[in-house]
Amino acid sequence: MKTNSKIARRVKLPLSDDVLETLHAGDEILLTGIMYVGRDAAHKRMMEALQAGEPLPVDLRGQVIYFMGPTPARPGKAIGAAGPTSSYRMDAYSPRLMAEGLKGMIGKGMRSRDVKEAIKKYRAVYLGAIGGAGALISGCIKKVEVVAYEDLGAEALRRMEVQDFPATVINDMHGCDLYEEGKARFRIAGPA
């Protein structure tokens, strides 16, 4: 896959604390390794488990979760279209998962103040994938398995092996926010 701005940095998953420290809002990176996948319904179930004092179905400590629900795989393919979904719907759950050890989230769109504070507190990161690039991203996914909540179909919890998955740092542990910085740089008028 070609990049047309700067050279994207290759980063291994799961993210080490040393690497996390060097990620800055606006950095373009290519992720290789293991990531977990879950969206609204899987997050709701994980939260219910935690509230009931039960363990999570997978150990998320040090891991990255990608907010995504794929289209069905055609025969012979690992997965169908696999772009990010809007992250704000996971805002109610993300701080708790970071408290459990989650180190990274991948999605698209803005996060709440609470999530951004939790990213700083737990020294984590929020990455953006390109919304609407589901076919392109599909090509970076080498292996997929459902690890919990199979009954949720497209919303089941998955583990994926990815290679050179393109992402951009949106919110880093240093408190920077690409959405705010990018908009400020190009804004000509104030809000309506």
């Binding site: 896959m1 070609k2 995504m68 629900g69 794929p70 289209t71 055609r74 393919k77 169908g80 279209a81 696999a82 772009g83 979904t85 390109i130 919304g131 609407g132 690039a133 589901g134 076919a135 392109l136 599909s138 090509g139 497209a154 393109p166």
Partner: peptide
Amino acid sequence: RLLENADAAARDAIPLCQ
């Protein structure tokens, strides 16, 4: 990337977006 995505979708028979 979005233009590349359109090519990939048509070529590899993957929907444009999930």
